[in-house]
Each structure stands twice: as structure tokens, then as C-alpha cells.
């Protein structure tokens, strides 16, 4: 490829990225300004992305017909219930996730066949097996990553929710009123979980079992302490305000330490990002002025060098993540 062309392409990519960032920042500012003075309630309106999302899920629901008759598919789909938010109960079902995986497998197999017809791939059993494996396990990994992000946000708001519930109970509210109040005050992913706990209480499930179900969904160790304390308190017929005060005192020290650690180590997160970007910026800089410099990296032994760089990045990110983790020892 002509080095001049590489330079042009790099320059255009960087320019487009900067323009996109500026537009995003500008639109966010405008959104905030408009929402302050808007008379329309934005809560009722659904964004274009949400409307498309709902239509897609409804389409997948129609393709589900028949799959739900098989016990094996129902069993395999039961683990996806933790991904569904309360506000999505209307249009999402567990079996929809399984249908999406099947659709992806079928899609990949069709692409495989088309590639074979156009002689892009040889006729090989391995590519077919690989398509099936990627189609089956790939979406699981993606959904699990999204779910883990949500769980991390929940763990940050958990202490706040306990504090809010504890102070409501101390003001002579019932546990349902306290949960309702906490879910109205706290904005975030934990809102959904508090509403699920409230629904469990409405169905007659005890608070300890509701939190146990919460623990089974999120697998957070802090929630394990909450449901153990609630179980103990329920056996001894203790009131919820005593139990929640105990839970709040238990978490108070823990969160104070974590906050202290996070404050002291915040600067390292920025340094870490800068260090990650240095090799990338150097690469772009050198590639811009001398595009042929890195040609040897794309052929022969150069691929091993690239793999070595990716390995170094992975190990560095993993070790820094462990160093900067605010875990209590």
C-alpha cells in the first residue's frame, strides 16, 4: 500500500474520532440544558434505541414458538433470568436469550457456507464447529460481561441502600415503605434489585429469602452477610431496625476503608491510562511520518512480536487491576 495513503487514512480516522467526541460532549451538554426547562416528562418517552430494542425482542419472541415446549431448553434458559431487569419483564423472557444464540449459530453457518461458495474458506469441519462454538458461547461471554458491570455498580450503591433503609426503619417505617423509599431515592442499577426484593415481599417471601435470592443473582459477598444476619434475626424474632442497624455498622468500617483507598489511589488510574496510551501514541506518530517502519511487524516473525505486545498489555492490565483493587484483607 502506498505510504501516502496510509498517512491519509490515519489522519482521517483521528479527525473523525475527534469530531465524534466533540459532538458527543456538545450533545450531552445540550441534553442537560434542555431537560432543566422541558415541560414534557422524559420518563414516559422512550428513546429510539429502546424502541428498536423492544421491537427486536418482540420479533425474537415470535420465533420462540415451540422452543418453550422442550424441558431441556427451558432448563438451559433458566440461568438468563438474572439478566432481565424488572422494567423489561413485559417484552423479555429467558428463552429469548436461547433463541438469540440459535439465530447467531444459524447466521454464522450461513456466512460459512457463503464463504465456501465464494472460495474464501476451504471446506473444513473445523470452521463449522468453530462457528457453532462461537455462536453458542460468544453471546454468553458478552452478556456475562455486561452483567458483571452491572453487579460492580450495584456493589458501590449497596452501602447507600442499607443506610437509607436503616434510617427509614429507625423513623418507624415498615420494611416495605423503607424499600420503596430507598428505591425512589437511589438512582442506579440497585434500584431494580430493590424493586425485585419489594415484589418478593409482596408475594409472601421473607426478607431473608428475598436477599438470599438477590445473593444468588449477583453473588456479592456483602449480600451474603445481609441475608445471614436477616436469617439469624428472623429465627430470634428480632425487629428489622435492630438487624439493619447491625448490618449498617458492619459495612460502615469496611466502606470507610475502601473509600480511603479509592481516594488515595485515584491518581494511579489516570497514570495507568496514560501509560497504556504511550506506546499507541508513539505507534501513530511514527506510522504517520514513516509508514513503512512497521511493515515487518505484519509478516513472518513480526506476528509473534505483536502477540508478545498483546501479552505484555494483558499482564500489565491484570497486575495493575489487582494492585488498585480496594479489597479488605
Amino acid at each position: 500500500m502506498n505510504p501516502f495513503v496510509i498517512q491519509i487514512i490515519l489522519f482521517i480516522c483521528i479527525l473523525l474520532f475527534i469530531i465524534y467526541l466533540l459532538k458527543l460532549i456538545n450533545s450531552l451538554k445540550r441534553d442537560i440544558h434542555i431537560s432543566k426547562f422541558s415541560l414534557d416528562s422524559t420518563l414516559q418517552k422512550k428513546s429510539l434505541v429502546t424502541s428498536i430494542d423492544i421491537k427486536l425482542w418482540n420479533l425474537i419472541d415470535k420465533l420462540n414458538n415451540g422452543l418453550s415446549n422442550y424441558n431441556l431448553i427451558n432448563k438451559l434458559s433458566s440461568k438468563y433470568s438474572k439478566y432481565i431487569l424488572k422494567s423489561e419483564y413485559d417484552y423479555k423472557k429467558e428463552i429469548n436469550y436461547f433463541s438469540i444464540k440459535l439465530l447467531i449459530i444459524i447466521g454464522l453457518l450461513i456466512l460459512n457456507i457463503i464463504a465456501i461458495c465464494f472460495n474464501l474458506f476451504p471446506v473444513n469441519l473445523i470452521t463449522i464447529i468453530l462457528s457453532i462454538l462461537i455462536g453458542y458461547f460468544g453471546p454468553d461471554l458478552f452478556w456475562q460481561y455486561l452483567f458483571q458491570k452491572r453487579v460492580n455498580k450495584i456493589s458501590k450503591d449497596l452501602h447507600l441502600s442499607i443506610r437509607t433503609i436503616s434510617s427509614s426503619l429507625n423513623n418507624n417505617s415498615s420494611i416495605k415503605e423503607a424499600l420503596k423509599y430507598a428505591s425512589s431515592i437511589i438512582k442506579g442499577d440497585i434500584n431494580d434489585e430493590l424493586e425485585k426484593i419489594y415484589d418478593d415481599l409482596e408475594y409472601g417471601i421473607s426478607l431473608a429469602n428475598a436477599y438470599k435470592r438477590f445473593y444468588k443473582r449477583c453473588k456479592l459477598k456483602d449480600i451474603k452477610y445481609i441475608y445471614k444476619a436477616l436469617e439469624y434475626g428472623e429465627v430470634l424474632n428480632l425487629s428489622y431496625d435492630v438487624i439493619f442497624n447491625n448490618i449498617y455498622n458492619y459495612f460502615k468500617n469496611k466502606y470507610e476503608l475502601e473509600e480511603k483507598f479509592t481516594k488515595e489511589t485515584d491518581v494511579y488510574n489516570y497514570l495507568f491510562l496514560i501509560v497504556l496510551l504511550i506506546p499507541l501514541l508513539l505507534y501513530i506518530f511514527i506510522a504517520f511520518f514513516k509508514p513503512m517502519y512497521f511493515n515487518k511487524l505484519y509478516t513472518g516473525y513480526g506476528i509473534f512480536v505483536l502477540l508478545g505486545i498483546i501479552l505484555a498489555y494483558t499482564i500489565f492490565i491484570y497486575i495493575v487491576k489487582i494492585l488498585l483493587e480496594a479489597k479488605n484483607e
Binding site: L271, I278, P279, L282, K296, V305, G308, I309, A312
Partner: peptide, 17 residues
């Protein structure tokens, strides 16, 4: 950690080619 990382990555990326 940063020194080791930068020496390895910059060595592989810039010096080796």
C-alpha cells in the same frame, strides 16, 4: 511495573522492527 512494561513494549514495538 510501569518501567518494566514500557521497556518491553517499546523495545518490541520500536527497536525490534
Amino acid at each position: 511495573l510501569v518501567i518494566i512494561f514500557l521497556v518491553i513494549v517499546l523495545g518490541l514495538l520500536i527497536v525490534l522492527p
